[in-house]
Design a protein around this nucleic acid. Structure first.
Ligand SMILES: [Mn+2]
Ligand SMILES: [Mn+2]
Ligand SMILES: [Zn+2]
Ligand SMILES: [Zn+2]
Lengths: 164, 164
DNA sequence: ATGTTATTGCAACTGAGTTGCAACAACAGA
DNA sequence: TCTGTTGTTGCAACTCAGTTGCAATAACAT
C-alpha cells in the first residue's frame, strides 16, 4: 500500500501537547515522532512495532490511549481507508490542507488527493445548515489509471482475515 | 441518532440480484426489504434483529454475507459514521444521488447533506488522475446548529464499549 | 526533595465480523 | 412435477482490533 505523504512540521505535536497540559513521557514523545515522520498511513499495530524498536516495553494500550487523546485534540485523523485490508484503522497527523484518500479496489494502492472542493463542502455546510465543521473525511474507491489500462478488475477481497 | 432518509424505490435490489444470478431466498428478500425501507442507517445487529422478527431462525452470518454481496455489487454502501457509537458499521441502499454524512460530535445527531461538490471531486479525480470512481464516502464531524446555540461542547465519548 | 496525579503496563476482556462445514433449498432442465 | 446441481444457510468455534480495571510508575509543580 505505497503512497506519498506530506510531512507535518516536526515538533508540532509536542508543542501542542504542552499547551493542553499533557505530560511529555518518553512513550508519548516517541509516538509523536513516529506520527510526524510517517511517510505512509500507519495502523495501531504498525505504530506499536515501530515504537517497540526504541522502547521495547511499550504496550499497545499506550498507543491506543495516545491516539485517542490526539484524535480528541483534533491533531490526528483516524482513517478507514475503506477497510480494504481488514478492520483496522489508520492514523495520520492532520495536515494544514485537508485532503481525500483515494483507494484502487483492483491493486490496493492508496493516494492522497487535494482539491478545493473540500473547503467548498465545509463552507456550504456552515452557511446552509449552521453546522460548524471540525474535520472532513473523504474516502473514495475505484480503479486507478494503471489498473484501467492493464484491465485489472478489482478481484481484491474487500475484507477478511486472510488479507493481512 | 435520528435522521431523514430518502427511500430507494422498492424492489430494486431484488431485480438487481436476479440480474446477477443470485438466488432469491426468503432470508435475502427479507434483508432487501429491510434495507429498502430503512428510515435510518442500520448496523448489522439492527438488521439482524429486524429480520428475526419475521424469520426467527436467521443468523447474523447470513446478514454479513448478504451485506458483503451487496457491497461488492455496489448497491449498498458501508458507512462508519465516524464510529461515534463504537466499532460497528452502518449500511444503506445506494441512492441515485450521492450524499455526505454529517455527525454532530456534541449530540450525536447524524444527517445527510446533498451537494454538487461531490460530483466535482469525482470529475476532477477522473480528469486529473485518470481514476475511475466507484463510490465516494464523505463523513464530516463537527457541531450542529442546535448545539452551537445551546453551547453544548462535544463531551460525547468518541468511542468505547459503554456507549452502546 | 516531595506530593499529587496523569500515565503506563499488564492481563483479562469485549464484541464486530469471519471461517469451516454439513444440511438445506433455489431453480434450471428433464 | 420430479431431480440434480450448486448457491445459500445455520451453527459453532474462532479471530483480532480495541477496551477496561487496577496497581505501579514517573512527570512536573511547588
Ligand atoms: Mn471503520
Ligand atoms: Mn445516508
Ligand atoms: Zn490500481
Ligand atoms: Zn448537535
Amino acid at each position: 500500500m505505497p503512497l506519498v505523504k506530506q510531512i507535518r512540521r516536526r515538533g508540532g505535536l509536542e508543542r501542542l501537547a504542552k499547551q493542553h497540559g499533557l505530560r511529555l513521557t518518553r512513550q508519548r514523545r516517541l509516538i509523536f515522532a513516529i506520527l510526524e515522520s510517517a511517510k505512509t498511513h500507519l495502523n495501531a499495530k504498525q505504530i506499536l512495532e515501530q515504537a517497540q524498536r526504541l522502547e521495547p516495553g511499550i504496550d499497545q494500550v499506550t498507543i491506543y490511549r495516545n491516539l485517542g487523546v490526539l484524535k480528541r485534540l483534533g491533531v490526528v485523523d483516524e482513517l478507514d481507508l475503506l477497510h480494504l485490508r481488514g478492520d483496522q484503522h489508520y492514523y495520520e497527523a492532520r495536515q494544514v490542507r485537508a485532503h481525500s484518500h483515494v483507494a484502487c479496489l483492483a491493486c490496493g494502492k492508496v493516494f492522497e488527493f487535494y482539491t478545493s472542493a473540500i473547503k467548498t463542502i465545509d463552507r456550504e455546510l456552515e452557511k446552509e445548515c449552521g453546522f460548524s465543521v471540525s474535520f472532513t473525511r473523504i474516502e473514495i474507491g475505484g480503479q486507478c489509471a494503471a489498473c484501467r489500462k492493464s484491465g485489472r478488475e478489482a478481484p481484491l477481497p474487500r475484507k477478511g482475515k486472510q488479507a493481512r
